[in-house]
Amino acid sequence: MTAALRQDQSPVAEAAPAPLVTVENLTVSFKGGDGVIKAVNGVDFTLERGKVLTILGESGSGKSVTLKAMMRLHPPRKTSYTGRIAIGGREILSLSDRELGQVRGSVVSMIFQEPMLAFDPVYTIGQQIAETVVRHEGVSRQAADKRALELLEMVQIPSAARRLKAYPHEMSGGMRQRAMIALALSCRPDLLLADEPTTALDATVQMQVLILLRQLQREMGMAVIFVTHDMGVAAEIADEVAVMYAGRFIETGPVGDVIGRRLHPYTEGLLASTVHGAQRGQRLETIAGAPPNLAKLPSGCAFAPRCRYVEPRCRETEVPLFHPKPDHAARCLRIDR
């Protein structure tokens, strides 16, 4: 991980000795019935310990695919990866299945969007947490049960001892998401991946879960990659934001810069279409059109067909990343002027 290798990355980590996560020119493509789907097309970023990166984007922009690629969770037969992912010095893309099993859960773990579906309905919450603890730390069942109780208390589940013996369907949505967080944190991971963990929850519970996540993240000093399509959520939790479109980061930077001094027209569109701060009775602005078909991407800027500032040169060449400020970058030719 020399500086030379990271020349074109988000320069946030430039001063730091060795960032926890380094992703270089990552591409993920799937072999489907109708050709190859290029879901991620060259993603670069670094993330330090104790920082939260939020990946923003609409459905199909490749944000969840990027997240799952961090753990190589995609079906191996249909997926091909190129580029490089290093987490804590481990090259994720070249690990054997066995090593991968050790990394998953203990170095990197994940919380899912729909907590109801992420728990096995036939086992209690306690059994499922204890199982992961036993698998990774090789402790006795009693020690694992005790650990599960501590974890449920840590995520502030009321009457935790009784909840250990509860089945997933016996808990409310917010409770389940807390239990999911407890499960993900059971082996003290360095990196937590969160795939829209608040989308399935109602607004008040959403906030509680976000506050809890933020608090636990600070206490444990872990890095978090948080995927969402909600600007408000991103503003709440992120240190850095990356806006994703058609499998690329089109704008990256500190949360204040990206929201306050956005560079890319797509980010602008996303911000305009959010309900946060919108006035009653006024129509929300939307971005016209739909994301491009990932099986046949347009040449040049992928956003060009929907962009209101589109110029002929946008469609000619691939747009590089421009850095108007050292830690704030975007892929738009308009910055060049």
Binding site: R98, R104, G105, M110, F119, D120, Y123, R135
Partner: peptide, 20 residues
């Protein structure tokens, strides 16, 4: 289902997933 992926994400191998 998601919980199989969740199990995989927490490090379970194919055999564990079948068994459990």
């Amino acid at each position: 289902l998601d919980f199989v992926e969740a199990a995989r994400a927490s490090g379970a191998g194919g055999f564990t997933i079948i068994r459990v």
